[in-house]
């Protein structure tokens, strides 16, 4: 191989399928994207909530990530309103996590012996989510292809165990593999019969253009604020209801535990995500003044932190069940 030839290099969907297969083969649950607007794979509950608590979990999923302010009307070859991440969570991370990651690159057709790869310091922090981690940006021939983070804290809570988060930038990797200068020229799929290609532009250009118009020009600011207030209010109500259960000392413990387990904290988290996205929209409409800004961020953070605390409590309630299941699995393992 001298240089990648677009005809022989993997298509965009080959890349996704390849990575999913790779991680599935290493014990990950392959999840579907969260079906709400999120700014990053980290915000999806499969990361934000699953990293909390003691339960081990390995998962991989594609997550379209919307950042309204990054939209460029489809004019810029590298910037997108909605880009796509492939997110892997390994909780806890194995000691060979970096080697595993490098193997995944080989699996999608990158011959590491022909390239220059570096792990350069890049720590991650999201004050809105009360979360931070330590890690690297992985550079391949000068291109940042992955964000590699050891999560240390989420929702203001120290993680135990910690987890490793691998976030692949799919458009970048595809453009690199296919050696194209514009994301819109990436071959998304190729008909195996006819060899006809469908490009990223064919699939997504209209999306980028129209949502840029909406985000920057047309989104109704008054409505957005109303939506924000409503979603926030409902989320707060749910959180208060959960806290009321926590404080209830008249009901028998077992009934309280049952009530907690069925409590829709997952729904509360979706409401929080709605608020977060609305904040981003309002921001891209230039509708948030300086004085408001800090306050609005704090409102979203309150929800996120409140949910993570409640979620941990809920997990604790479920702990006996988890322990019992582990014991069953352990017994099975011993029997094998």
């Amino acid at each position: 191989m001298t240089r990648s030839d677009q005809k022989t290099s993997p298509t965009y969907q080959d890349l996704i399928l390849g990575l999913e297969k790779f991680w599935a083969d290493r014990g990950c649950v392959v999840q579907q994207p969260h079906d709400l607007e999120v700014g990053a794979g980290t915000s999806a509950p499969e990361t934000f909530l699953r990293v909390l608590g003691p339960q081990p979990y390995n998962v991989a999923y594609v997550q379209p990530s919307r950042r309204p302010a990054d939209g460029r009307y489809g004019d810029n070859p590298n910037r997108l309103y909605k880009h796509t991440q492939l997110q892997v969570i390994l909780k806890p991370p194995p000691a060979t996590v970096q080697e595993l990651y490098l193997e995944s690159l080989t699996a999608i057709g990158i011959d590491l012996s022909q390239h220059d790869i570096k792990f350069e310091e890049d720590n991650w922090e999201s004050p809105t989510l009360g979360a931070w981690g330590i890690g690297w940006q992985v550079m391949l021939d000068g291109l940042e292809i992955t964000q590699f983070t050891y999560f240390q804290q989420c929702g203001g809570v120290d993680l135990d165990p910690i987890c490793a988060e691998l976030t692949y930038g799919l458009e970048r990797i595809a453009a690199f593999l296919q050696d194209v200068d514009s994301v819109y020229d990436i071959v998304w799929a190729r008909d195996p019969e006819t060899g006809l290609a469908v490009t990223y532009g064919d699939v997504r250009y209209a999306d980028e253009l129209q949502f840029s118009v909406y985000n920057f020009e047309r989104a109704n600011v008054d409505y957005l604020w109303k939506h924000f207030d409503l979603f926030e209010a409902e989320c707060q109500e749910l959180l208060s209801a959960y806290r009321a259960i926590e404080k209830d000392d008249k009901t028998p413990a077992e009934a309280v535990a049952c009530e907690k387990r069925r409590f829709p904290l997952l729904a509360a988290y979706d409401l929080c995500l709605k608020c977060s996205h609305l904040f981003n929209l309002l921001d891209s409409r230039g509708a948030i003044s300086v004085t408001e800004r800090v306050g609005v961020i704090a409102r979203v953070r309150n929800l996120a932190v409140g949910i993570s605390k409640a979620y941990l409590d809920q997990q604790g309630t479920a702990a006996p069940e988890v322990a019992a299941r582990k014991q069953r699995q352990g017994a099975q393992g011993a029997a094998d």
Partner: peptide
């Protein structure tokens, strides 16, 4: 500066040029 032996086929150079071009275009 690379962290590898060299770049006989020019693959690494090509990749870096591509990234820089995108950056400069931006």
């Amino acid at each position: 500066v690379l962290n590898t032996e060299g770049d006989p086929a020019g693959i690494i150079r090509h990749g870096n040029e591509r990234v820089l071009r995108a950056r400069f275009n931006d």
